[in-house]
């Protein structure tokens, strides 16, 4: 493989990492609070507001129903309004983030619903405010589950990032399509796939390691 191709692969890997990191951070910044709210706002819960819970649940489901490649194209006007352009790596971060938010929100919601209701009761009995219960009890106790959820989200975003070549997002997936497929360069295709496998493996291992560090429950209670 020529030094030129090596350079292309290197650049593409960095682009992929950049898009995934940015959309994970932005997706978590919005998805985490949204997930916490979804997990605590049904009738009779801490932040009980059943109406808003239903509306947000519908929006989340609707966003998750749209195939990612359609989402990328459909929100081009929004992307242009935010980034100033609809093509390039930065532009690709917008649809990736938009797909990440509802996904992360659902994963966070599930992790928080796993927390024993007895802990909420104990915290209420201590005189905790709903916000204190969320930060000191729910999110903290759900850390292992949230970490594994975020790991899953990052792996999915690595997959999604391969599709943003459609709007000039570049990255590994785009390189694979343009060189490996369209220019019949199987060695590029193989390299891209190998790099992606290594990336996913790394993310998964790091995620599980962090989750295990957070998890202080007895081994038999680990539901993962």
């Amino acid at each position: 493989m020529s030094a030129n191709l090596m350079w292309l692969l290197y650049e593409a890997t960095l682009q992929t990492l950049y898009m995934v990191a940015a959309s994970t951070l932005l997706g978590t910044a919005f998805g985490l609070p949204l997930g916490v709210f979804l997990a605590t706002s049904q009738q009779g819960e801490l932040l009980s507001s059943p109406w808003l819970n239903k509306v947000l649940g519908l929006v989340v489901n609707a966003t998750r129903s749209v195939p990612f490649i359609i989402l990328v194209v459909a929100i081009i006007p929004l992307t242009r309004a935010i980034v100033g352009t609809s093509i390039g790596t930065n532009a690709a971060i917008v649809p990736l983030t938009l797909a990440a938010i509802p996904f992360i929100a659902r994963l966070v919601e599930n992790a928080i619903r796993e927390v024993d209701a007895g802990l909420i009761e104990a915290a209420r009995a201590m005189g905790a405010t709903p916000m204190q219960i969320i930060t000191k009890v729910l999110v903290r106790e759900a850390r292992p589950g949230i970490t594994l959820g975020l790991t899953l989200a990052v792996v999915s975003l690595i997959g999604y990032s391969a599709m943003v070549g459609a709007v000039g997002g570049e990255g590994l997936g785009d390189l694979g399509i343009r060189y490996g497929y369209q220019r019949f360069m199987p060695e590029v295709m193989v390299s891209v796939v190998v790099i992606l496998i290594v990336l996913v493996q790394l993310v998964q291992s790091i995620g599980e390691w962090i989750a295990a560090r957070f998890d202080k429950r007895a081994p038999r209670n680990r539901g993962h």
């Binding site: 802990l119 005189g127 850390r143």
Partner: peptide
């Protein structure tokens, strides 16, 4: 006001309700 009262009333539980992460 209710939270202030709750700080004057301790409670213990059958299943302890301790935070596993602390």
């Amino acid at each position: 006001a209710l939270r202030a009262i709750r700080r004057e009333v301790g409670m213990i539980f059958q299943h302890f309700n301790l935070l596993a992460s602390r």
